[in-house]
Design a protein around this nucleic acid. Structure first.
Length: 923
RNA sequence: GCGCAUGUGGCGUAAUUGGCAGCCGCGUCAGACUUAGGAUCUGAUGCCUUCGGGCGUGGGGGUUCGAGUCCCUUCAUGCGCACCA
């Protein structure tokens, strides 16, 4: 009987499915363990070999934990709302649901072939109404909540209203758009609309006029993490800034908690650092500058309060509300012109140009510390969205201010001793202060850090400003002018938004005739006919963004069929949070921030019992493509082999990697590949055509996509699983290279050969030899430690070594193989299941127990000593562990005598550190 | 510019965490078996060598009896953030 991977894998996959081997239920008698993969967006291209890398790693861990006695939750689902399906729908008119379902079916088929231990009864899809009703539900709860900075958590908006009714804004300390002050009476006198607008200033899900990233080509707004360098991540289209009335989530209210929470997480330092950067906490001060001949008070933010005596001008963001307030009549036109120019520049143009530009407002502000009058300018290097949208410019110690001052010939006052500011600014926060005597506040001679602290203290005392912490993290823009997403459970009555009652959920996504905006420019939902309406009132036409559905999906897996709640108390308290989350690092500033925010919000509500959703996170590396090239001699149909191409003028052409093996081209298949190559000629080296290669992104256009189905077909799922793990450390990005896969496949065949020779079953009940026990226990120890550390690649090596040793030893003992199969089972579930049953077990190997290793079997008989004389290391000696020290000394001296210099000298002292060092003092 | 990683044979990688650098696999070479091999098995394989040995973990320096591993410095590559005051 040969190792027939196809037959074995199909048979066991069927058996697992029929027996529901991987079904998981709450079981309070066992400790829980929750292993989660980032669920995929089911794209039309299907899975390539890069996708399963993380899934295999988490599958191994799940199976391992189960063998260790844990009750393991390991679910899978689909992030099924998204732009590609909709773009496809626009082009073809096909309903995105149809293509999505087809893609999901294809994904499922591919996933099943790899033999994962998912509990498919828990599958979820974000576009399933029974799922997205809970996305809508959470939105309603956010709408009905505000963030109370006193209790430092989200609270019911009713509590805020009660306060307004009793005391107005007095005593309110809440996260909000702008600080409002009104009395209970004023609140009472507000119209419904005014009240609604006022509450919007506080709600966690709110409608706001915000500067958004507008992508004209995609026809929608994008979140900050969906834009990179002024281009949309999806599609790479230019993105411009636009003021729009949009739904937003007040993520910024959670900035500090999101930052603090990182400390409790077992994530890589680099990922935490990425999030810290994204949150961008900076401690500084807010200060007020009076404007000359005006009652306007400019509020600015600075982290360098110490440089106050070096301020030579002020700068406002072009969009700042201060601009209109301070600009003089003479300068009005110039300022307006400048604002227009800036407005029509896209974010990308602004970034590429990086030219200094700006205009004087005509107004002057007064430095509150020395009374000096300084000009107020407008420039687009100041961002309206950060701080107060206005800065005090200190050209001597800020490179941007410096460039601006140089360009417009504004004065530069150095404030730090020894700093040469003739060529560039001195930005470092170090050195002794000079030129900083303002009478009451004198910073001269102080170190920068002390000066910052002193200035902050001073301005607080004098009421000129206050200490302030700013965050770079912005509120998330939550509306998309798109069809294929969750509808908002919102309707408008007299222009005032209201949420649907929770009992009315889910609000189903309606059918539309086209997936394009309406003629009047409304989002596609404006085309909905017969949509459920609320007493004839208008429903919200935007849909939610992609991250809405993925923000709490890990909770739904705990209790996927619950129609009463997102997750029951019981399920939440049992499964709590994800113990191990495996996925790509590209979600660092998107999903992984939103999910944490969403979870913290639900925590505040008392819906979930853990503050953080993902306890440990592993970022699997990307698998890149390894493209192959053939080299065509210019203007011919002749191709020259890689090693000879330097003698010709050639054009490299991508060739399908599937007709290349170990960089050798299959010439017949190449000729058949494309009609224009049918009569191709070849210049060969050693009778072969050798292709060149390059590492690139895996993509269709480079013909370097390797489909896991093909690998499974040829080598089997177990080989694929082992090989993907063998490729290198899981976190590392690496090119897919099929060149080494035969080695892994050979290992499985060797394992099989230990059990069967032809039809003869070789295993018996003989007693294992000491050598075999040592080989086995070495393996158990290595793999146990490796899995805990996610070093799967070295585990695969360990399996190979063990099988080689057992082959050499001609080991036939059932006792050895029983344990070996259990340890290998997480990596190669099919072959181990088959062989485990062959050993006479009637239960599945997944229900076995992980074996413990016994150190007794591993004891080394020899130990290495480093021998040194008079502290000078000479050589190492491998000596039997039980050798007495006199014997070690004798061996050492004997060995050294061949070196002669020791002759005639006497030994004075010998220091022996067991198993380490022997130092022999002679003289 | 700032931050975080990573540099080891022809290639992917490993090194009990300071103790014989290169395990395991690919590739290559030699041999065995075979009608045949893109099958299987065995052995060799870091580099140089005058065959004594010498040199080797991006470069330079340091600590140590001993450094791929720790410290300083420098170079290269990858990733993240980026007019964030």
């Amino acid at each position: 009987m040969d190792y027939n991977h196809k037959e074995i894998e199909q048979r066991w996959q069927k058996a697992w499915k029929e027996n529901k081997t991987y079904k998981t239920e709450i079981d309070s008698s066992k400790p829980k363990f929750y292993v989660l993969d980032m669920f995929p967006y089911p794209s039309g291209a299907g899975l390539h070999v890069g996708h399963p890398l993380g899934y295999i790693a988490s599958d191994i861990y799940s199976r391992y934990k189960r063998l260790k006695g844990f009750n393991v939750l390991h679910p899978m689902g689909y992030d099924s709302y998204g732009l590609p399906a909709e773009q496809y729908a626009i082009q073809t008119g096909q309903h995105p649901e149809k293509t999505t379902n087809e893609n999901i079916a294809r994904y499922r088929e591919q996933l099943d072939k790899i033999g994962f231990c998912y509990d498919w009864d828990r599958e979820i899809r974000t576009c399933d109404p029974e799922y997205y009703r809970w996305t809508q539900w959470a939105f309603i709860r956010m709408f009905k909540s505000y963030y109370d900075k006193n209790t430092d958590k989200a609270e019911s908006i009713e509590k805020l209203i009660e306060n307004f009714e009793k005391r107005g804004t007095k005593g309110i300390n809440a996260a909000c758009g702008k600080e409002l002050i009104f009395t209970a009476e004023e609140w009472y006198n507000m119209s419904e609309k005014e009240k609604s607008d006022t509450l919007m200033n506080y709600r966690i899900a709110y409608l706001g006029n915000t500067m958004v990233n507008w992508c004209p080509q995609l026809g929608t707004v994008l979140a900050n993490d969906e834009v990179s360098e002024g281009l949309s991540i999806r599609g790479g289209y230019p993105v411009e800034q636009k003021l729009m009335y949009q739904w937003c989530l007040r993520v910024s209210a959670y900035a500090q908690r999101l930052l603090d929470g990182l400390e409790t997480l077992d994530w890589t330092e680099s990922l935490k650092e990425t999030q810290r950067n994204w949150i961008g906490r900076s401690e500084g001060a807010e200060m007020h500058f009076k404007v000359v001949d005006s009652d306007v008070d400019l509020e600015i933010f600075t982290t360098r309060a110490d440089t106050i005596f070096g301020v030579t001008f002020m700068v406002l963001a072009p969009e700042s509300k201060y601009v209109d307030l301070v600009t003089t009549a003479e300068q009005r036109k110039a300022v307006e012109d400048y604002r227009n120019v800036v407005k029509h520049k896209t974010e990308r143009e602004r970034q590429i140009e990086k030219k200094v530009s700006g205009v004087f407002t005509g107004a002057y502000a007064v430095n509150p510390l020395n009374g000096k009058e300084i000009p107020i300018w407008v420039s687009d290097y100041v961002l309206v969205g950060y701080g107060t949208g206005a800065i005090m410019a200190v050209p001597a110690h800020d490179s941007r201010d410096y460039a601006f001052a140089r360009h417009f010939d504004l004065p530069i006052i150095p404030l730090i001793e020894g700093a040469d500011v003739s060529e560039e600014s001195f930005d470092a926060k170090e050195g002794k202060m000079i030129n900083s005597d303002g009478g009451e506040l004198n910073l001269n001679g102080m170190e920068v850090k002390a000066a910052i602290a002193r200035t902050k203290q001073f301005i607080e005392e004098k009421g000129i400003g206050k200490v302030k912490v700013n965050y770079r993290l912005r509120d998330a823009i939550f509306s998309r002018q798109r069809y294929w997403g969750e509808p908002f459970p919102v309707y408008y009555k007299d222009d005032i938004p209201y949420t649907l009652d929770e009992s009315e959920l889910p609000l189903l996504l309606p059918e539309v005739d086209k997936y394009l905006p309406t003629e009047t420019g409304e989002p596609p939902l404006g085309r909905a006919k017969n949509w459920k309406t609320k007493e004839g009132y208008r429903l919200e036409l935007n849909t939610m963004p992609g991250f809405a559905g993925s923000s709490a999906y890990y909770l739904r897996y705990m209790d996927p069929h619950n129609s009463e709640a997102l997750v029951s108390k019981e399920a939440d308290e049992y499964w709590r949070n994800v113990d191990l989350y495996v996925g790509g690092t590209e979600h660092a500033t998107g999903h992984l921030i939103y999910s944490r925010f969403w979870n913290k919000f639900l925590y505040d509500l008392g819906v979930v019992c853990e503050q953080e959703p993902f306890r440990k996170l592993i970022n699997q590396g990307m698998i890149q493509g390894r493209s192959n090239f053939v080299y065509r001699i210019k203007d011919t149909n002749t191709f020259v082999s890689f090693g000879l191409k330097k003698d010709y003028d050639v054009t490299p052409i991508h060739v399908d990697v599937n007709i290349v093996s170990n960089d050798i081209l299959d010439i017949d298949r190449f000729r058949a590949w494309r009609p224009e190559f049918a009569d191709a000629e070849f210049i060969l080296e050693d009778g072969k055509y050798v292709c060149g290669y390059a590492v690139e992104k895996m993509s269709k256009s480079m013909f370097n996509v390797v489909n896991p189905d093909d690998i499974v077909e040829r080598y089997g799922a177990d080989t694929l699983r082992l090989y993907e793990m063998f490729l290198g450390p899981i976190e590392q990005s690496k090119p897919w290279d099929t060149n080494g896969i035969d080695g892994v496949n050979r290992f499985l065949r060797r394992l099989w050969a230990l059990f069967y020779r032809g039809d003869q079953f070789l295993i018996d009940d003989s007693k294992p030899s000491a050598d075999s026990l040592k080989s086995l226990h070495k393996l158990i120890k290595k793999v146990s430690i490796d899995i805990e550390n996610f070093s799967y690649n070295t585990s695969v090596s360990a399996f190979m070594i063990c099988v080689n040793e057992l082959t050499q030893q001609k080991c036939r003992s059932r006792e050895i193989y029983d344990s070996l199969l259990v340890v290998l089972a997480p990596f190669a579930p099919h072959i181990t299941e088959e062989l485990y049953h062959a050993l006479g077990h009637s239960t599945s190997v997944v229900d076995a127990h992980w074996p413990e290793w016994n150190e007794e079997y591993l004891k080394e008989s020899k130990v290495t000593y480093a021998i040194s004389f008079n502290g000078k290391a000479r050589f190492n000696l491998e000596i039997d562990v039980n050798t007495p020290r006199e014997e070690i000394e004798r061996m050492a001296v004997e060995h050294e005598q061949s070196q002669r210099w020791i002759e005639g000298k006497t030994i004075r002292k010998i220091i022996v550190v067991p198993g380490k060092i022997v130092n022999i003092v002679i003289g």
